[in-house]
Nucleic acid binder design. Structure first.
Lengths: 206, 206
DNA sequence: CTAGCACCCTAACAATCGTTAGGCTACTGT
DNA sequence: ACAGTAGCCTAACGATTGTTAGGGTGCTAG
């Protein structure tokens, strides 16, 4: 019932500071004592809020996972053209990166840790479902002839994911989400989608 | 004088295996004993080839740095139009990523470690010089009106670098360098560079 | 043959890791 | 007033870390 707002929610402070440190230095390289220092407390006191270092990492990642899963579920159920769905997914991913930047950096940086933690099975399951949505959407956009044929044969999902995740390291004031959407969409879309005169719908690359 | 080719160059094997492990799990998370296991030797035996873990990391990164520095120096001295120089730099970066993928992943993943290691001052100095070349080239391309005005106000260098470095995680068979160049250049270049028709003045491949 | 070095080993070091045990303080509900 | 507990502390645990000491084997030069 309590969880005072004005006072101090130390648990949230621990989550925030540890997320920042994990993202900057890596999970293994960040010791519990360094996290405690950043929060103005003692290493052992962290265990009053979290049972283990793994649980602390998991709490950070689960927050972000819940957010992005909600966004993707809405996009999955919306009636959208393939390219519009693709743009919506890119924007959702970048929105999640904006709100949970540290969590995203931890997720894509310490992938070995994420894959091994027993507390993250649900996060991993969600990631599989998200990948399937990406693949289905990209396949639909390719089938509609809206993707440059150059990218028909490669794993465009992984390319887009890596490109988007990499921007989590850029602070918000350096590059806007619109800039990134602009680069990615203009980079992969077929030159003149439907009206133009001179574009054959597809061409297997040589 | 020796360094037998057919026999076994254990030092190179240590470099290769440790680079792979550092890139996958992170420097701090990879212990000397794990590296030794991967090389079929004992942890203490690694110190016959490298004086410390830091020196091992540095040896990996210096190799890659020497390669990319050579490429950039040649590009700096070549008489190129801004956009062509930009494309050459992107290709050089991606070439380095292809040849020294693990080193590149270590460099951009464990940045805190790179910034703190006393054995990497030369690598850091080179990085500063490379960044200056990037900025000068991008500024020239903007001044020539070849960059979409959307990107005139942001740090396009950092955006491009993050986007390129992120592709180091994609194995070569998933995405080719040409694909990435295509996405990036088409994403940032101004729509119709100079003339009115629809043919860019030059483009090597097709 | 012998000295010397390259190469690798076992054993152990001090330091640091995540974590636990147990106690102190301050607030809360009854 | 008093028990309970949330929140934090000090102190220490066993395990693991990077690293060192010192010895053994086998090749090679003289």
């Amino acid at each position: 019932m309590s969880q005072g707002t004005g006072r101090a929610n130390k648990r949230d402070a621990v989550l925030r500071e540890s997320a920042r440190l994990f993202a900057e230095r890596g999970v293994e390289a960040t010791t519990m004592r360094v996290i405690a220092d950043a929060c103005g407390m003692q290493a052992a006191s962290l265990y009053h809020h979290f049972a283990s270092k793994d649980e602390l990492v998991a709490a950070i990642l689960v927050r972000s996972d819940a957010h992005i899963t909600g966004l993707y579920d809405a996009i999955r159920d919306a009636p959208l053209e393939p390219v519009d769905r693709l743009e919506a997914m890119i924007r959702a991913t970048l929105d999640n990166l904006g709100h949970y930047r540290d969590a995203a950096r931890i997720y894509y940086r310490d992938r070995a840790h994420v894959a091994a933690s027993p507390l993250l099975t649900q996060v991993r399951d969600h990631a599989v479902a998200h990948d399937e949505l990406w693949d289905r959407t990209i396949d639909a956009a390719i089938a509609a002839g809206r993707i440059s044929p150059r990218f028909a044969a490669i794993s465009l999902r992984r390319l887009l994911q890596e490109l988007m995740w990499s921007t989590a390291r850029l602070r918000g004031d350096a590059v806007s989400a619109d800039d990134i959407v602009h680069v990615l969409l203009r980079g992969i879309l077929a030159p003149e989608p439907e009206l133009g005169r001179d574009e054959p719908p597809r061409r297997p690359e040589s």
